[in-house]
Design a protein around this nucleic acid. Structure first.
Lengths: 226, 226
DNA sequence: ACAAAAGTGTTAATCTTACACCCATGT
DNA sequence: ACATGGGTGTAAGATTAACACTTTTGT
């Protein structure tokens, strides 16, 4: 058999939620063959690092963003001609950050990173558009059966933010009363004693997600489901 | 950066169900460093084939089994010392066959393939035990929200076989009446006019899964859930 | 006639959905 | 006083869960 000539890369689809909009973290290369084309952060895996480490390193190097949640999404390796004479198989990771960590690294000489609204994503390099699409599907699914929405929000958040997050990402109407009832019934979020007072309208209480509590309840077989 | 020295492989975790037991397809190498150690079917990806093609090829070469269902499971690449000086990252695939296709290839000079009951699987090569574990979790989950159980049964099956499959794999009791009601309510399985008469007990009608119907209903937003 | 496996309905309990008004603040 | 956004409860409907006897065959 011919010697294997395949390179292994990782790519990250990182979502952020801010002011009712969902964003994806993208980078733009200033030089090279893909000059000025947008792409997902990512790159070749080094010999001595795990796949996870590779993603985290690339994210740090290219964007500076610290993520709250990361999981492997899918391995893309079917486009044989993706990069002529240089077959690359890429392990895509799916991640979430909250808006407090949404500040990106200042431009370097070679790279520019930015949050782009999901529905304004241009044609990306390689099969990255497909990756974003799959990642978004995963986000939608996961949101309904795991409490990952909290990883897109600040530590302390208003109930209306959570509600807004769900109805933005799932593209569906949500009944405020039923939603609150259900979320509270899991016993995984707790009231803080802070009241947020901003602009017109009644001030809102801030809540906090209790991850430890969730882990315990999970073990006891409790099922989160929206 | 040092030249990348990573090899890419695929491995397949294939489940079969027969007489109330769940089996995994394993192979045993007769020579080499892993002589007589059991392992999952799999091997290095060739330069000109997709990952899917690679799995199917390896399965054909090593076991001869024709599968009904196949999907990518997870990419394992964290054990850096998995094979000293030869780092291998492996894309694991998860598959199902029905018992009519459960016959394996006769032994070749180098290989022996066999169906081993899930709870009798020995220590396998590399991180293959971990792969089996993850694949089984996937099977359990998927069984509850996608009609993949049918891919483990013959085309025409008794209701009791289906019921037995669910309660074996999910390790839980199932109420026959409620189960039948629910499954039938989806409208995705149909009666055949065949009655199976075997041994003592009332003969049972055979049913058939209508995949086309399921695809249609799926588009209309129907949700399969046990 | 007895053992074995398949087939079948009803009722209570739970969960889900739909729905509208009051509250606390800013202007 | 009016606009804005936050907070709250109830009742009807749908779904799920619990439960036991009859049917058809082989021996």
């Amino acid at each position: 058999m011919k010697l294997q000539n395949i390179r292994l890369a990782v790519d990250a689809i990182i979502f952020g939620f801010s002011e009712g909009n969902l964003y994806v973290l993208l980078i733009q290369q200033k030089f090279g063959t893909n000059k000025l084309q947008w792409a997902l952060p990512g790159g070749l895996v080094q010999n001595e690092e795990t796949l996870n480490e590779a993603v985290l390193r690339e994210l740090a190097e290219e964007t500076g963003v610290k993520i709250n949640y990361l999981e492997q999404l899918y391995t893309f390796g079917d486009k044989l001609d993706r990069d002529h004479r240089n077959r690359v198989v890429s392990v895509a990771y799916f991640g979430l950050v909250d808006s407090s960590k949404i500040i990106v690294k200042p431009d370097t000489d070679a790279l520019h990173a930015e949050w782009i609204a999901l529905d304004e994503i241009p044609k990306l390099a390689f099969d990255h558009n497909q990756m974003v699409k799959l990642a978004f599907q995963r986000l939608q699914n996961k949101l309904t059966y795991q409490p990952i929405g909290f990883d897109l929000l600040p530590k302390e958040f208003q109930f209306s933010e959570l509600e807004n997050l769900y109805c933005t990402i799932l593209h569906r109407e949500i009944d405020r009363r039923n939603f609150r009832k259900k979320i509270l019934s899991f016993g995984i979020i707790e009231e803080t004693d802070k009241i947020l007072l901003k602009g017109a309208g009644r001030p809102s209480r801030l809540f906090r997600f209790n991850k430890k509590k969730y882990r315990e309840l999970e073990k006891e077989g409790i099922i989160f489901e929206i």
